[in-house]
Design a protein around this nucleic acid. Structure first.
Lengths: 331, 331
DNA sequence: TTGAAAGCGCTAACAG
DNA sequence: CTGTTAGCGCTTTCAA
């Protein structure tokens, strides 16, 4: 790689002048500017970003922490963030944490050493403490931890209630829930929405809630369990789309016709929900928008470090698809 | 952030000594070493990676270029690579290129300025020329461009032939193909495998090949088209899993029973293929292994820059699932 | 308008 | 075993 020095020599100026031309700061006479530009061209000179970073103390890199990029909820989020970063000339780093606090801490340390400019994380374990030790701004996404850190989330409770209402509207009377993992706050809020809608029903008991781990396989099992105990269930609210695909699978195997015997609605609105058979009704999160919002929060913070950014809560939107579309519904 | 200098002062040694302790090079007397370590502890000192990079000329960062991370084939690849990088203390950068040569070039330039150590790319457009201009080693993954660059791929032709044989074995007589985009070499090879198996059949003509763009929606359309022209088709080989999901959808809408009326087999073996109804038979690529192989190639190259690394071609594996299993029909 | 020089934080000779 | 020093490539005073 050619350096600023070589450019300076060829153009017969000092490195300072070359620097001025590159960064378009200060005044440089038209003639020398031309000379420098020609030299840059000739040598295919590209400034060494590392040297710049060392001097300026920031790397123009932003990281995203996700539990696991192979979970289909995250790629769209990642894509949105990368798009925004790209627009602003920032480099995007992806970190899979496997929800491990240790891994998170290791990444945090490494990135700090690299002078990372900002971090967006989908994490349940990061604390305000940890965040404070890092000089880069941090925004949490999808998950909220405490009230301290700025966050981008959806209203899980409200979404859950709407999902339940929808099931009611199409005539479901015995509604069950496949919930997400115990440790996940989102799963808890969705459960709460469900409970508030059914807890006073005389038929309701805890066997109407089965626990999955947000995965396809666990949901298949949970559904078998559910339908064995409560074969009369005619509607299920599932905590995420991936599990809903498992519910469909189990239901088919148990000869349930969907939605006629049993309607299914889930949560997230990932692409998968459009490709299942039947297609899945779901409370869709504005995933791409959430990602770009979080990214823009970081950018804001980079521009104006003093400015406090406020958290944003998005609403989910009911996508009514085949899994709840009963042709002739009787209310 | 505290610097090496401050540590040196507190420990009452020179910065060189601190550096020696950090990097465990040269001999440092036990006592001074203790003192330095205490100072490091006390000040929570973490070496500035940027300064190191500037000095050493390498950043310990590796990038992956993918067309689009929201395409479900790539996250698993990305995950594998990140895992390997992580194991080796390397930082992982993700770049979505949208298959745009321009975007690729921009990324390449930016990463070079950041002293990127290596690049893994799933690209159709990168040329040996481009690669040569970059000092970092480059490995291509999933796609091969010319013979020049080391690559990790699968034997598409062979996989396609095996898929066709499988369809034949279960009794299919009129087999059609939904092919991938014209520009994609993999799609071309899969098509060729298909053609070589059917081109001599007297029933065969070009209407048995419909073109999709690797996406769900295009495949739905392509399948309608296909079945309108050739309703007697009793088996389809689809160029990727995502499209196969679309084929299932269209088939169902046209009242085709799968696999009895029409069997379906596809290519890739992404998770989606396990969750469709019916589950998809597919020629599975060892996706994770391919990713980690490419990552390890880069690591090899980093250790021994002179060593030529040779390309690797993986075989696909037939996953026999419901969409070709005629004894237990689902829908 | 331009150049000289200091320094960002670190490592690696080279001395001692 | 340890310290001094010269960079890595860049930006930014400070003078001229």
């Amino acid at each position: 790689m050619t350096t600023i020095k070589e450019v300076a020599q060829l153009a017969n100026v000092s490195v300072a002048t070359v620097s001025r031309v590159i960064n378009k700061v200060d005044n440089v006479s038209y003639l020398t500017k031309e000379r420098v530009e020609k030299a840059i061209e000739e040598l295919h000179y590209k400034p060494n970003d590392v040297a710049r970073t060392l001097f300026q103390g920031n790397s123009n890199m932003v990281a995203l922490f996700v539990p696991d990029i192979t979970n289909p909820y995250y790629p769209e989020l990642a894509r949105a963030i990368e798009d925004v970063m790209n627009q602003h000339g920032l480099t995007f780093i992806l970190c899979n944490t496997d929800d491990s606090y240790e891994k998170e801490q290791t990444y945090l340390k490494n990135l700090e050493q690299k002078k990372i400019d900002g971090i967006i994380m989908s994490s349940s374990s990061i604390s305000k403490q940890d965040a404070k030790r890092i000089s880069a701004p941090i925004v949490t996404l999808d998950r909220k931890v405490g009230m301290d850190l700025p966050s981008v989330t959806v209203d899980n409770y409200k979404g859950a209630c709407q999902a339940m209402e929808h099931l009611r509207n199409i005539g479901c009377r015995r509604i069950a829930h496949i919930r997400g993992p115990l440790r996940d706050k989102n799963a808890g809020e969705r459960l709460e929405g469900f409970l508030d809608m059914v807890k006073d029903e005389n038929w309701f008991d805890s066997t109407y809630v089965q626990s999955g781990e947000y995965s396809y396989e666990t949901a298949v099992q949970a559904t078998f369990e559910l339908l064995k105990k409560n074969p009369e269930v005619d509607g299920v609210f599932v905590a995420n789309d991936l599990m809903a695909a498992g519910v469909l699978k189990a239901a088919i195997e148990m000869k349930k016709i969907i939605p006629d015997d049993m309607a299914v609605i889930s949560f997230d609105g990932i692409n998968l929900s459009k490709t299942t058979i039947p297609t899945l009704s779901t409370m869709a999160q504005p995933i791409y928008e959430m990602g770009s919002t979080a990214a823009n929060m970081i950018i804001e913070q980079l521009k104006e470090p003093s400015k406090k950014i406020k958290s944003k809560v998005f609403d989910t939107e009911l996508m009514e698809r085949q899994s709840t579309r009963r042709e002739d519904t009787v209310l």
